[in-house]
Design a protein around this nucleic acid. Structure first.
Lengths: 145, 145
DNA sequence: TTGCGTGCAAAGGTTTTGCATGGCA
DNA sequence: TGCCATGCAAAACCTTTGCACGCAA
């Protein structure tokens, strides 16, 4: 988990800066490429992928999987990030596709239960709950009538 | 969720038969193709993908995402499947890659909490918990010493 | 100068799509 | 016969990799 990069490069710097300034957003490698392409200050896509992966290894970013055939999402996990509190997790609505950030102390209880009863050390940041969001549940109820 | 298929085809039949006889296994589209190819009774891969997707829509199969860049997994959810009890869920070890099936009544409590406090109707079959399995946790503790 | 980081292009794996053919009802 | 399902091939999509060049230390 410790930093393994030895060189400080401009690409790494502006990439991290981009992510730090978007707390709570789920950002894909494609988003990053597009952002810098549109600004003219382009970064090669392999560099984007390699740096993102490295930052995840270093614990600076969190990476999570929304869906097969959806690109991986990244999020800054540093000091100012609400994520660091460890009570943030993600819910993905299977109907409208919305990704929801939830803050919940109950998550600690779930984590503890998993560890004590199933020996599984769960990683809340990587875990995505699938289901139906409030709006889509209501819609479904209405259409059932 | 209701059946939308009108025709009964041989391909659909043997595909479903294959999945029904593998309860508790996580099967990919590639597994299916390979299985039938090796048996000589081949099914075209686009048919496999289309039928799997249809069966998921009909509620016959469950589909879940293990990881970006890993193929999607499918599992039969019918009468004899332990999955139907609604207390089965999946854990994926981020270190050794193992996929674990857990049975746990606590899952009901988690589901209820999500619904009551966050308005989110969670789908346990689709949700995969990421983290470290028991063996890998121990290994990590040992190496920390 | 050393060797890590970058960028391009190509490859890799999974899934989707277009279109003509085949098969169910 | 009418229409859906199939199968092949090609495309699409995200990500990884090989290799030569550039730049930080």
């Amino acid at each position: 988990m410790e930093p393994r990069s030895t060189y400080k490069t401009k690409q790494k710097e502006i990439l991290l800066d981009y992510l730090i300034n978007r707390p709570g957003e789920h950002i894909t490698a494609g988003d990053v490429c597009e952002h810098f392409r549109s600004k003219g200050s382009s970064i090669g896509q392999s560099t984007v992928y390699r740096q993102l992966e490295r930052l995840v290894d270093e614990g600076v970013l969190s990476k999570y999987t929304i869906d097969v055939n959806s690109p991986a999402c990244f999020e800054y996990m540093g000091k100012d990030s609400h994520v660091e509190k460890g009570i943030c997790f993600h819910c993905k609505c299977e109907k409208c596709g919305k990704l929801i950030h939830l803050h919940c102390d109950e998550m600690e209880a779930i984590k503890n239960h998993m560890l004590e009863h199933h020996g599984f050390t769960m990683d809340p940041m990587r875990t995505v709950f699938y289901g139906l969001c409030e709006d889509c549940s209501k819609e479904q109820e209405d259409s059932d009538k």
